[in-house]
């Protein structure tokens, strides 16, 4: 794995146990945007340097 891969790829194990902190619902990983999307909460949580930032205050609101 190259350095760049490591930055954008989330650990698989980590992905399996993460849920949206607000709804406890599932998350979809958008590798391109480096975001974890909670459809139920309509929020996109950023992943920075491989670290998921699971704070609603840091998340982007998704418009329908």
């Amino acid at each position: 794995m190259t350095e760049a891969d490591r930055e954008t790829t989330l650990d698989r194990k980590l992905l399996e146990l993460l849920v949206c902190p607000l709804t406890k619902g599932p998350l979809i990983y958008d590798q391109e945007k480096s975001e974890l999307i909670s459809k139920k909460a309509r929020l996109a949580y950023p992943v920075r340097d491989g670290i998921p930032i699971m704070l609603p205050s840091e998340a982007r609101a998704i418009e329908e």
């Binding site: 993460l18 849920v19 949206c20 902190p21 607000l22 670290i51 998921p52 930032i53 699971m54 704070l55 609603p56 840091e58």
Partner: peptide
């Protein structure tokens, strides 16, 4: 990164 009171 998460608030320990609102675990993901």
């Amino acid at each position: 990164v998460a608030d320990q009171e609102v675990l993901p």
